[in-house]
């Protein structure tokens, strides 16, 4: 059965528009159509100038994060039927500059992601071995945090990032933790300065909305707050033994 729903999209072209505006479209939809498919209908049939990011259509690529009626969600995983007969308002993720319409500029996050060294800093294998083996329990220590795919819904949800863009933020700190918690990794000493700074884990006040909106159940709030404990231990260790070489 085809019904019609009103989709309001935020439109903004920084080079020509003085300020963002909402533009409404009447979109025919079926029960199995997502918000992303609604946007694709608009682009194909109603207004080819609407700009938005998307790729996989199945919640694995991390492209179509948007504010849907004020909540950070994935366009591909949110269905239009949920809102009918009401209106769907689609806006770009909060707290990020707009490149055009619904596409945001991710540069700030990408710089932060790079700063946490989100890769294995290889640990020397045990004597006589040429690889670092890992037990299933050791994998469990970080597996949940490795599921992050940088949708950035958590940054749009984080009031602290909104107040202070210097805050390293949920996803970057979670990925930092993912590698620190990996038994094969030797990069902890290089990552702790990021954790320990004022804009590291200490920028978080445990509001917890990041974990609520995460579509991958990564629980960034938990990762960040585990690192408040780690940072505190590191602080007192540094206080007691200021000249001790940082071990990984």
């Amino acid at each position: 059965m085809t019904r019609t729903i009103r989709i309001e999209c935020l439109r903004y072209h920084p080079e020509t528009d003085a300020e963002p505006r909402l533009q409404a479209y009447e979109v025919p939809f079926t029960d199995d159509m997502s918000v992303l498919q609604g946007l694709q209908y608009i682009k194909d049939h109603l207004d080819g100038s609407l700009t938005f990011r998307w790729s996989c259509r199945m919640a694995i690529c991390g492209s179509c994060g948007q504010m849907v009626n004020g909540v950070p969600r994935l366009g591909c995983e949110t269905f239009l039927r949920e809102f009918w007969p009401g209106t769907v308002r689609v806006e770009p993720l909060e707290h990020f500059p707009i490149v055009r319409d619904l596409a945001i500029d991710q540069s700030d996050f990408l710089a932060k992601l790079e700063s946490v060294k989100p890769y294995l800093v290889q640990k020397a294998p045990p004597a006589g071995e040429n690889t670092n083996l890992q037990a299933p329990e050791e994998m469990q220590a970080y597996y949940r945090y490795s599921k992050c795919i940088n949708y950035l819904l958590c940054y749009a949800a984080c009031p602290q990032y909104g107040l202070n863009p210097a805050f390293t933020g949920p996803a970057a700190l979670t990925l930092l933790h993912r590698y620190n918690a990996d038994s094969r990794d030797a990069g902890r000493a290089q990552r702790m300065p990021v954790v320990n700074q004022e804009d590291g884990v200490w920028g978080c006040t445990l509001v917890g909305y990041c974990s609520e909106v995460c579509p991958k159940d990564v629980d960034p709030a938990r990762a960040v707050n585990q690192n408040k404990v780690n940072s505190t231990l590191d602080y007192f260790k540094h206080f007691l033994f200021p000249r001790a070489k940082e071990k990984s």
Binding site: P193, V194, N196, Q197, E198, G200, W202, K228, S231, T232, D234, Y235, F236, H238
Partner: peptide
């Protein structure tokens, strides 16, 4: 990167 002094206050807060 400057180390924050928050751990002192956070430890007292946590305790």
């Amino acid at each position: 990167m400057k180390r924050s002094n928050k751990p002192i206050f956070w430890a007292l807060f946590g305790a």
